[in-house]
């Protein structure tokens, strides 16, 4: 068997159809008898479960270490506050040290540098990881706790929990910021989903810059083909980027989406588009 392939479905712009592509792709590949693991890395707003409707079998709480100070042991050296780049620990003098759990990035600097051993680690809950099955598809997603900002740590834990399959599909959050970078680490291939509009093109260029910087092989899928203009296609031609699939602007796709139905179930004529996409991915990933 060929080695496991990890594909990430990403986009610069939100709402271009990442989840539509990711879930339908997972479904046709699983129906082809391949072992597929779908993981929704959009931990701030996961939505893959709406379409895949998985049976959740496991749920676990994810924690990160944050500092806890025993002020009696403090020697007023101030090193903890100096090393912190996020204002998560502040030394005010007279053995007074404040901590702000929600600002902490768990770099460990404060507890490693404290010469008095006054700082220890405590656990902060940042979210949960749920996993289970949707038919033959293995499913997992992360849910970030409301008000928490540690999406990167949760994505990292989610990715570590993925068990080897023929194919892993990562549904990536939108944009080009830290959670996206974390999601794209160590993937074999990225699909950038865009819509053929000026907004879609602008954000596609940002996403292309990112994946090129990360040196990951990638290609483009155009969703809602027929709206907007041909500038995305021209851009891809100029930049020598392959377009692996164009999903037309079909009202029936939007209607299926609005009631949580998969495209390939509601409109079987699109099944061949997704199997074709998979074949194209395999070809491109070989390059």
């Amino acid at each position: 068997m060929a080695k496991q392939l990890t594909i990430a479905i990403a986009s610069g712009k939100g709402g271009t159809g990442k989840t539509t592509i990711a879930t339908n792709l997972a479904k046709v590949i699983a129906e082809d008898g391949k072992g597929v693991y779908y993981a929704d890395c959009d931990v701030e707003e996961p939505n893959g479960h709406i379409f895949l409707k998985p049976q959740i079998e496991q749920s676990r709480t994810v924690t990160v270490p944050v500092p806890q100070v025993d002020e009696n042991k403090c020697t007023d050296c101030g090193k903890c506050g100096e090393v912190c780049q996020y204002g998560a620990i502040v030394h005010l003098g007279n053995k007074k040290v404040l901590t702000f759990d929600n600002l902490c990035h768990s770099c460990a600097g404060c507890w490693m540098l404290c010469p008095a051993g006054a700082i220890t680690q405590k656990k902060m809950e940042i979210g949960i990881i749920e996993s289970g099955n949707s038919g033959d598809i293995h499913f997992a997603h992360g849910k970030l706790r409301i008000g928490n900002i540690r999406s990167v740590s949760l994505i990292n834990q989610l990715k570590q929990s993925i068990k080897a399959r023929d194919l892993v599909i990562l549904d990536v959050p939108p944009g080009t910021s830290c959670p996206v970078v974390e999601s794209l680490k160590n993937v074999d291939f990225v699909i950038l989903v865009t819509e053929p509009t000026p907004f879609g093109l602008n954000d596609l260029k940002l996403a292309v810059d990112l994946v090129r910087k990360m040196e990951i092989t990638f290609a483009v899928v155009i969703n809602r083909d027929g709206i907007g203009d041909d500038k995305c296609e021209k851009y891809c031609q100029q930049e020598n980027i392959s377009i692996l699939m164009k999903l037309p602007d079909d009202r029936r796709i939007a209607e299926a989406y609005s009631v949580g139905k998969m495209v390939v179930d509601a409109l079987p004529e699109y099944r061949k588009d997704f199997t074709g996409l998979y074949e194209n991915i395999l070809q491109e990933a070989e390059k």
Partner: peptide, 18 residues
């Protein structure tokens, strides 16, 4: 100095004042 801090500007500014 906290004016362009990534996060925790209020805490860092308060420390400066202190």
């Amino acid at each position: 100095e906290a004016v362009s801090a990534a996060a925790g500007a209020g805490v860092t500014a308060a420390k400066t004042i202190t």
